[in-house]
Amino acid sequence: MRKGVVALSFLLFFLLLFSYFYLPSERMNDLYQEIPAQVRENSQLIAAYYYSQTGFNGFREYQFALYAPDSKALSIYTFKTYKFLKIWPRMKKSKITCKTPFNYSLLATSPEKLNDVKNCNNCRELLYKDKIYRDEEIESIYPSIEEVIKGKENVTYTQIAILKDSEITTGTIVDVYGDKMFPTDDAYYGKGLLYLPSPMLNFTRGVVVEFLPADNGTIKRMIHYPGNITLSDTLAGHCSKNTTWDLKEVSIRQILQKLNSPQLQKAIGRNSRARFRIFKDAGTVYAWIRWIDKNDNIHAELRIYPPGRIDRRKFDYINGYHCN
Rank of each mutant, 00 (worst) to 15 (best):
M181K: 15
L264A: 09
D70V: 15
T100K: 07
L23T: 08
L194H: 10
A274G: 10
D311W: 01
P69D: 15
G4V: 12
K95M: 10
I278H: 02
K152Q: 15
C120N: 09
I35D: 05
L235S: 04
Y188I: 03
L16Q: 04
A300K: 04
Q159N: 14
I132F: 08
C323D: 06
Y189R: 10
P306R: 05
V117K: 02
I298G: 01
K164W: 01
R277V: 00
F211V: 06
R275D: 01
D311K: 10
F64P: 11
D175L: 15
A300L: 06
T284N: 11
V117H: 02
V176M: 09
D311Y: 04
N57A: 12
I35Q: 05
R27P: 01
K180E: 14
A274V: 08
L212Y: 04
S144Q: 12
I35K: 03
G269D: 14
R270S: 06
T109W: 10
K129G: 07
Y133K: 01
F102C: 05
I132S: 08
N103W: 05
F18M: 08
F14T: 12
Y32S: 02
Y225Q: 07
N228C: 01
A187F: 14
G171H: 01
P24A: 06
P226H: 10
P89K: 07
A161W: 03
A65L: 14
D293F: 12
K152V: 04
Y188M: 09
